[in-house]
Each structure stands twice: as C-alpha cells, then as structure tokens.
Computed example of a mutant assay.
Amino acid sequence: MIAAIDHIVLTTARLDECIAFYCDALGMTLERFVGGTPAVERLALRFGRQKINIHVQGKEFEPKAQLPTPGALDLCLIAALPLAEVIQQLQARQIAIVEGPVLRTGATGKINSVYVRDPDHNLIEISEYLS
C-alpha cells in the first residue's frame, strides 16, 4: 500500500539556526511554497526527491502532530558523498559527531553511520550503504 516517504515535518524553536544547519552544513535547499487552507507561505528543506517541511514551535500549521516538539526527531539520511567526506565536512564546520562511524542496519541493507544533533537537538544519522 505504501511506496515511499514524500516528506516529513520538523518542528523547530530556532528557525534561522535550523535553516543554516540543514542548508549550509548538510547541503539541502530552502524552498518556499504556498500551501494549506487558508493558503500561506511555508518553508521546506529539499534534497533529492524528498523534503522536510518546517513548522516553527507555537506557529504550526494545521493539521499537525498531537505534540509537535523540537528535539523529538530521530532521522536517518543517506549521504550523497562517501561518509569519510561527510565527516570531514562536519568537522570543518565544527559540528560535533555524537557517535560513529558505526555499523547499523538501514532499510535495504547494512550502513555505516555518524550521528549529529541539529540546533533543536534532534538526532540526525548520516549514513552510507555498504556494498
């Protein structure tokens, strides 16, 4: 019945820092779009064929999660670069690696991962599939 994830929603208490982390550090693209009822301008972080819609804490769009909370997200992203290059770029930007590299199991096989935290303290796993 389900084929893929189209988007997820991230609730942030630190909009500017959130955008900087995902766009500058992780290379996502900020997208502005009009959506909802009534139609209002929204923000999303686009990468590949997916996006992360942004809700600002206390100004969420309806419908929303029952308890939208900054820092409650635990997300695994697949890197477009070798993980060694990801680690170098994270270190160059002084983004602390919480754990890793470590071996894990992804949706379709074994992955090598590092974990970081975004400005809202969400846990972000960045991985590469092992051949």
Rank of each mutant, 00 (worst) to 15 (best):
A3M: 11
A4E: 13
I5N: 07
I5Y: 01
D6W: 00
H7R: 05
H7C: 07
I8H: 06
L10P: 02
I19M: 04
I19Y: 07
A20Y: 08
A20N: 14
C23T: 15
C23I: 05
C23R: 15
D24W: 06
A25E: 11
A25C: 14
L26G: 03
M28A: 10
T29H: 11
L30N: 13
L30V: 10
R32S: 13
G36R: 15
G36A: 10
L43C: 01
A44F: 08
A44W: 04
R49T: 07
R49I: 04
I54Q: 01
H55Y: 11
H55A: 12
Q57V: 03
E60N: 13
P63M: 11
A65Q: 15
L67C: 08
L67R: 15
L73S: 05
L73I: 12
L77P: 03
A80I: 06
L83H: 05
A84T: 15
V86D: 02
Q88C: 09
R93D: 08
I95G: 01
I95F: 01
V98A: 02
E99M: 11
E99P: 10
L103T: 12
R104N: 09
R104C: 06
I111Q: 10
V114P: 14
N122P: 05
I124C: 04
S127G: 04
E128G: 08
